[in-house]
Every structure is written in structure tokens, then in C-alpha cells.
């Protein structure tokens, strides 16, 4: 992404004539010329450095965080935010009179909520003594954002969170730093089986989940609002025992 931004600004085609899109492109437009850009570490570092120095490290962090979002316009928005940013400096994200900043902030907030959802709804299964594995199906590539959250929550456990959509795994060995690993098909197949490894505590949790609800106050609409169906795929309390 950073290389794209570098190429875009170096191309001297005029900012208004450029739109950055992420591959794969689903719908090509006839009137535009497509330029493929390969990642280049040097160019990327150059952009990174200038964002940090000319805008601020905080803004860089926000941009990097937002780049996990699934929205396809995110790359172009980051580029537009940078253009505003280089003229205003560190306060750029408060400049809500610019439509692109507003849109960026909206996506950033939505992403924050999505990360929050998965912080709440990740369900670990004990695969063997002291090793916990969870599967998630998020829209955005957010598994890396869950790293610091769960590393702080369970610093002295072995655990692994697997993103089934993007085939990535976040691996946290006991008392060590977590890391990210792309999964190949055979690894993924093997890891899929962990979903069935339930133990007594999974059943106990279901019992608790049933009995904690007050029948007189039943409100399915409210429940669905707060716990959307698409995030429930791996929540054991909504799975039948069969």
C-alpha cells in the first residue's frame, strides 16, 4: 500500500487524476489506465518515514490501523488523507470539513467496532492441556489487532487465533511475543478440526448461557442488534450439540 502511495505521488499525473485501488479488481473501467505496482520495501519505508516526520507518528498509527479495513476505497482514502495531512500536519484527522477525512473517520470507527466485536466473541477451544485455539471469520484483516489485546489478557498461555477468511493465524507462545503466520491449505485443514474439540466447560457455558436469561424479559431483537448474526458463526453458545 505504501509503495502505491509513493508511486502515485511520484508519477506527476496530478492528484485528482489518480485513484488507488487494491487488487484484485472486480470491475475494470474502460476509461482508466491501470498501473500495477509491486511492493518495494525502500519506497514504502520512504513514505512511512515522511508520514511520521511531516505529519505525526500518531496519524501514522491511525492510518496503519485503518488499512486493515475491508472497504475497497480505504487505500484511496488513506492517500487523500495524506494529501490533506501534508498541508495541515498532525491535526489532520480533526479537519472534518473535508469529506475524505470524514469518510476515513467513519471507516476507522466501524473498524474499531469490528475489532471490538471479535475481542468479545472470540471463543477458544482447549485442544490439548494448556493450548487454546479459536477461529474467526471477520470482514477485515483484523487478526493482528487482536494480538495485543489477547497477549495482555492471557500472557502466560499458549494460544492461537485463526482467521478463516484470510487464512492467517496469530500465534502466541506462553510468555513470549505473538507473531502472525499465513497458513497453507494442509495446515488450515488440520486446524479446522479444533472446532469440534469441546469439553465439559463448553457444555457448562451453554448451561450458564441458557439459565442466565430472564424469560419475562425475552427480547430477541435486542440480542441480534448487540450480537449480529454474522459474528456468531463460531460462538459455541449458539451451536447445537448435534
Amino acid at each position: 500500500m505504501l509503495t502505491c502511495i509513493y508511486e502515485a505521488s511520484a508519477s506527476k499525473r496530478g492528484h485528482t487524476n489518480i485513484k488507488l485501488v487494491l487488487e484484485p479488481i472486480e470491475q475494470y473501467s474502460l476509461l482508466d489506465q491501470y498501473i500495477h505496482v509491486d511492493a518495494d520495501l525502500k519506497k514504502a519505508e520512504c513514505v512511512m518515514k515522511s508520514i511520521r516526520e511531516k505529519i505525526s507518528p500518531q496519524v501514522y498509527r491511525e492510518l496503519a490501523y485503518a488499512s486493515m479495513a475491508y472497504e475497497e476505497e480505504i487505500l484511496d482514502l488513506i492517500y487523500r488523507v495524506l494529501l490533506v495531512g501534508f498541508s495541515y500536519g498532525a491535526d489532520v484527522l480533526n479537519m472534518v470539513m473535508y469529506r475524505e477525512i470524514m469518510q476515513f473517520n467513519q471507516i476507522r470507527r466501524r473498524l474499531g467496532r469490528e475489532v471490538n466485536h471479535f475481542q468479545e466473541f472470540v471463543r477458544f477451544h482447549e485442544v490439548e492441556k494448556g493450548l487454546y485455539v479459536a477461529h474467526i471469520e471477520p470482514k477485515s484483516r483484523l487478526v493482528v489487532a487482536l494480538g495485543p489485546i489477547f497477549a495482555d489478557r492471557m500472557p502466560s498461555e499458549h494460544f492461537m487465533i485463526i482467521d478463516d477468511i484470510h487464512k492467517e493465524a496469530l500465534i502466541h507462545p506462553k510468555d513470549e511475543m505473538y507473531y502472525l503466520k499465513p497458513l497453507n491449505d494442509s495446515e488450515y485443514e488440520q486446524l479446522l478440526k479444533t472446532e469440534e474439540m469441546n469439553d465439559t466447560y463448553t457444555d457448562l457455558w451453554k448451561v450458564f448461557f441458557e439459565s442466565i436469561a430472564i424469560r419475562e424479559r425475552a427480547n430477541e431483537k435486542c440480542q441480534t442488534n448487540l450480537f449480529p448474526l454474522w459474528t456468531r458463526k463460531h460462538a459455541v453458545e449458539f451451536k447445537d450439540n448435534t
Binding site: E120, F121, F209, I212, A213, I214, R215, R217, A218, N219, E220, K221, C222, Q223, N225, L226, F227, A235, E237
Partner: peptide, 9 residues
């Protein structure tokens, strides 16, 4: 909040 019960709590 880790889950929401049938009463939405």
C-alpha cells in the same frame, strides 16, 4: 460484553 443472552442483556 462477551455475549448477549436471550433477553438482550
Amino acid at each position: 460484553c462477551h455475549t448477549f443472552a436471550a433477553d438482550g442483556r
